[in-house]
Write a protein that binds this DNA or RNA. Structure first.
Lengths: 116, 116
DNA sequence: CTGTCATTAAACCGAATGGTTGACAAATGG
DNA sequence: CCATTTGTCAACCATTCGGTTTAATGACAG
């Protein structure tokens, strides 16, 4: 029995992941979490936003499965869960062949079609 | 002079790309465009949405730099421009080491071609 | 008990999103 | 000329987003 909700190929999960990545604040938070586990307050610190706003961002990342949280007393420790990123990476990988060197030739051909 | 708006590392562009990818309809449109250049009507056909809605989706993809359009008479031909996807791919590549090391058997099993 | 600290919850705001409908423009074809 | 096709635009609607402020929860320190 496969856990579809956490599958790399679950399109709904992909929606949430890509949407989570669509915000620079959240992307920067992920970068920060890549180097060290942090509390919500630490994640909020680099930004000129309220703690409540940062808390919302963390929740979005959590909903996308990119962050896991462990509550210890009154502080919430967040750590990166990279697995959903692999799903996004896989999705993009399909298009890898299109941006290679060969594309330029194809593009030139499409732009200047001297024959059919 | 560097064209920042089309740079792979332009964060604003990355915002728009990830946001464009956060919708399953648009992802499917990109898939379709990967195999063949299509008109807006052709892109809209597989979905139960109005042509106007599809037109909006195409515009979002265009704003993200993922689709280029050439108008020929009354029909608009859209084709994939994959370069911004390379930027997104690059961003994700940074995190590859986080999931690459700990790929267990189950995850390898789930690593199948996209069904989307 | 009483504060203070870390964080979420709730209510609100303006802007964006994804969808609709109806009107419009322009090219095509009788 | 007239109708149809292709697509956009404008207005509208409900929902979501990213932000705020103010309140509430809950854990530690006196």
């Amino acid at each position: 029995m496969v856990d579809l909700s956490s599958s790399r190929n679950n399109p709904q999960r992909l929606d949430r992941v890509f949407q989570a990545l669509a915000d620079p604040t959240r992307r920067q938070m992920l970068r920060s979490l890549a180097s060290r586990e942090s509390t919500v307050g630490e994640l909020a610190a680099p930004f000129r936003i309220s703690l409540a706003a940062a808390s919302k961002h963390v929740k979005v990342l959590e909903r996308a499965g990119l962050v896991r949280r462990t509550v210890q007393g009154r502080t919430h420790f967040c750590r990166l869960d990279p697995k959903p990123l692999a799903g996004a990476h896989d999705w993009l990988k399909f298009y890898e062949r299109f941006w290679g060197e060969k594309l330029d030739a194809l593009e030139a051909l499409l732009r200047h079609p001297d024959k059919e």
